[in-house]
Write a protein that binds this DNA or RNA. Structure first.
Length: 454
DNA sequence: TTGTAGACTTGAACATAATTCG
DNA sequence: CGAATTATGTTCAAGTCTACAA
């Protein structure tokens, strides 16, 4: 949460609260339970690996047991049983490294664009217009979304046209300037017919496709991390298309460009067989960073953020992390009482900063709100979390519906999902809120003395 | 200390498979 | 049996948090 200095009890207090809020304990009880079960299935996974007899790598010293044998899944399992669970709950590597050996086949790229059959036409201003291949591809993205509400939104259309024009030949640029004069209907109908045809395919054809997918999965869907064959979560590169932001996103409709091998950074261990780029292409980089868990990354062109290919939740690396999370939650359970007492105390603090923090903490605890980091204005939809709440998002009533000191929340949270709630709060909280709102405009931050970082 | 890029989790929306029902 | 419903899997934008540089 917030604060500049670090008295240890306060730090602990914050940490614990972060955990509670981070893992939304109140919010997702059932799901959490299911997830815990998933973790326990790790052992059965090891068993399966054993049965299938996956290839093992040459041993590294520390992967051998005292007698110089492989630390195979079976060994590992029995060792773990011997030493007790605690051993597993410990980080496997203490130096921050995540693995020692990593080998994989690299990503699967999106299939290349297939031009439309010549009888499917695009019309501009009522007349057929033959598009260049590049422009046509982008046009099909739009055509595929024609039924979607998105395509009626002004920002979407504006962004689309701007990016589409970038893909046009200079000739097309001159002629095609008004999206309202563009008619994508024939394309749209064609795609609908295609997907219909796919549904009507015979059993045989469907099976063929399934088998092909299975083959790809077998070839690219697994990697070898240390001694284990692990399932990769997303081994396919995101195909090009139009960006669909959620809520009122200022960048909706922009073109998500096609990712090429030269955009791709490969991460694997030096002593592994490096994945090969497609013939005639090069990777952007091949690195060997065992401080991270990803296998492949690239930079996406809409927000400039980095996308990753990582492992499945069933993998050791994800499972352990998940486990840690629950451990933290368990630790938190032991001290929530103390934390609650502390923030109630802080409601009376003479320091504004601490008061604001304590009230925010109370909301997070009581209502399971998200922390609410700062975000870049204008780059994303306007949404907030607890610490980024603005005066306009809450409404105070000393009395409402027979209850005293009611706070009415109304704001857009993550994914622009509306949060609306009326809660009676304690008098002291109410008074504090009144204080925070004094002399402020609706668009001012409610917790202006708060910063989210530790 | 502050600002920022990078890493990683989350979950809504969509897609597909499995199951139930008339 | 196919249609309808439900369960399960995949995709990917949108969060959170951390490490590190200035």
């Amino acid at each position: 949460m917030a604060s500049e200095h670090s008295d240890p009890s306060e730090k602990e207090h914050r940490d614990q609260e972060n955990v509670k809020q981070k893992y939304g304990m109140d919010r997702h009880k059932d799901k959490d339970k299911r997830k815990e079960e998933k973790i326990w299935s790790y052992d059965s996974k090891l068993k399966k690996e054993k049965e299938n007899g996956f290839a093992r790598l040459p041993p590294v010293k520390s992967e051998l047991d005292n007698d110089g044998f492989y630390l195979s899944p079976k060994h590992e399992k029995s060792l773990r049983r011997e030493r007790g669970k605690d051993e597993w709950e410990e980080e496997r590597y203490t130096d921050g490294s995540k693995w020692r050996f990593l080998e994989h086949k690299g990503p699967v790229f999106a299939p290349p664009y297939e031009p439309l059959p010549s009888n499917i036409k695009f019309y501009y201003d009522g007349k057929p217009f033959k598009l260049s291949k590049k422009a046509e591809e982008v046009a099909t993205f739009f055509a595929k979304m024609l039924d979607h509400e998105y395509t009626t939104k002004d920002i979407f259309r504006k962004n689309f046209l701007k990016d589409w024009r970038k893909e046009m030949t200079s000739e097309e640029k001159v002629k095609l300037s008004d999206l309202n004069k563009c008619n994508f209907n024939e394309m749209s109908e064609y795609f609908k017919a295609q997907s219909e045809a796919r549904k009507q395919m015979s059993k045989d054809e469907k099976l063929k496709i399934k088998e092909e997918n299975e083959r790809l999965l077998q070839e690219y869907g697994f990697c070898l991390m240390d001694n284990h064959k692990e399932r990769i979560a997303n081994f396919r590169i995101e195909p090009p298309g139009l960006f669909r932001g959620r809520g009122d996103h200022p960048k909706m409709g922009m073109l998500k460009r096609r990712i090429r091998p030269e955009d791709i950074i490969i991460n694997c261990s030096k002593d592994s067989k490096h994945p090969k780029p497609p013939p005639g292409d090069k990777w952007k980089e091949v690195r060997h960073d065992n401080k991270v868990t990803w296998l492949v990354s690239w930079t996406e062109n809409i927000q400039g953020s980095i996308k990753y290919i990582m492992l499945n939740p069933s993998s050791r690396i994800k499972g352990e992390k998940d486990w840690q999370k629950y451990e933290t939650a368990r630790r938190l359970k032991k001290c929530v009482g103390r934390i609650r007492a502390q923030y109630r105390e802080d409601w009376k603090s003479k320091e504004m900063r601490i008061r604001q923090r304590s009230v925010a903490l109370y909301f997070i605890d009581k209502l399971a709100l998200r922390a609410g980091n700062e975000k870049e204005e204008g780059e994303t939809a306007d949404t907030v979390g607890c610490c980024s709440l603005r005066v306009e998002h809450i409404c105070l009533s000393p009395e409402k519906d027979g209850q005293e000191f009611v706070v009415e929340f109304d704001f857009l949270g993550k994914d622009s999902i509306r949060y609306y709630n009326k809660v009676p709060v304690e008098k002291r909280v109410f008074k504090n809120l009144q204080l925070f709102m004094e002399n402020k405009q609706p668009e001012d931050d409610l917790f202006d003395r708060l910063n989210v970082s530790p």
